[in-house]
């Protein structure tokens, strides 16, 4: 079977700090894969290896392999920029660029990578991405406004649209609802439920409840080690590992 993402004996160090300790993980194509664990367990760090964003941190050192659709993205002939074009990312803090309009925020990735050739195509793609992110109806009359006029939840959906516009196969989400109010959160969760039909989504969350609500598969990460992986229902109803059980029942952080 071919996996969307596969890590082989992945180690990450920050200086002398060993953060990810030999993780072997397989993420199947399509669906939501929730990577859960208490804060500080290394899940955000791990997520950033899937698009080589980890390399922005000069302290970070990576060992092992990360394969996207079978290809090791850390082999020397791969350019990180090419990787990032195929992998969208949504962040913990909703970060549409404040100095760009709503329209330009969606278009920016396409512009940078010259993925569309005409204004019409761009308009179409922006509309498509905003629709896909369930934001079109709310912003279609004010595409020239700046994101500061949007609520936190809307901003986060704008970031999702920004990522989707590049038509990635994989979407990385780093606790996308951590800074969003409950109404906004449920909207984003509904959206993920829609998107998981077409995309491989890796969702980092510290909330077992959220993982249970929207994921097909979960992985439980605890102080840099992958404790348990499996279909969501199975892991939650019948965990193999004691730590996992403590975590999903809320005994553990």
């Amino acid at each position: 079977m071919r996996f969307a993402i596969e890590t082989v004996n992945l180690h990450i160090y920050y200086g002398s700090n060993h953060v990810i300790k030999g993780v072997n993980l397989q993420i199947p194509e399509k669906g939501v894969f929730a990577l859960m664990g208490p804060s500080g367990c290394g899940k955000s760090t791990m997520l950033r290896t899937f698009n080589r964003l980890i390399e922005l941190n000069e302290e970070a050192r990576i060992e092992g392999e990360v394969k996207l659709f079978g290809k090791n993205i850390y082999s020397s002939d791969v350019d990180p920029i090419e990787v990032r074009k195929q992998v969208g990312m949504v962040f913990q803090y909703p970060n549409p660029f404040p100095h760009l309009t709503i329209y330009d925020n969606v278009a920016i990735g396409l512009k940078l990578n010259r993925l569309v050739s005409s204004k019409e195509e761009m308009d179409k793609r922006v509309e498509w991405a905003l629709k896909k992110a369930a934001l079109w109806d709310e912003v279609k009359d004010r595409l020239k406004d700046y994101p500061s006029s949007l609520s936190g939840g809307q901003r986060q959906r704008l970031v999702i649209a920004r990522a989707l516009a590049m038509k990635p196969k994989i979407l990385l989400m780093d606790e996308p609802t951590a800074n969003i109010d409950p109404v906004g959160t449920s909207k984003i969760e509904e959206l993920l439920f829609e998107l998981r039909k077409d995309y491989t989504i890796v969702l980092v969350t510290h909330s077992p409840a959220q993982a249970a609500r929207i994921s097909n598969y979960v992985g439980f990460l605890y102080s840099g080690e992958l404790i348990e992986v499996g279909p969501t229902r199975k892991v939650f109803e019948n965990p193999e590992h004691e730590l996992t059980e403590q975590y999903v029942t809320g005994v553990l952080g």
């Binding site: 964003l53 920029i81 074009k85 990312m89 913990q92 100095h99 920016i108 940078l112 990522a163 990385l172």
Partner: peptide
């Protein structure tokens, strides 16, 4: 500039030059 904007620029596949250009716009 908050780190998250830098990350966002790179996550979109920007080269260092392009990320810089984008972020310079932010601090106009």
């Amino acid at each position: 500039i908050p780190y998250t904007y830098r990350e966002a620029a790179y996550a979109l596949g920007a080269t260092k030059y392009e990320a810089t250009k984008l972020l310079i716009g932010y601090i106009k």
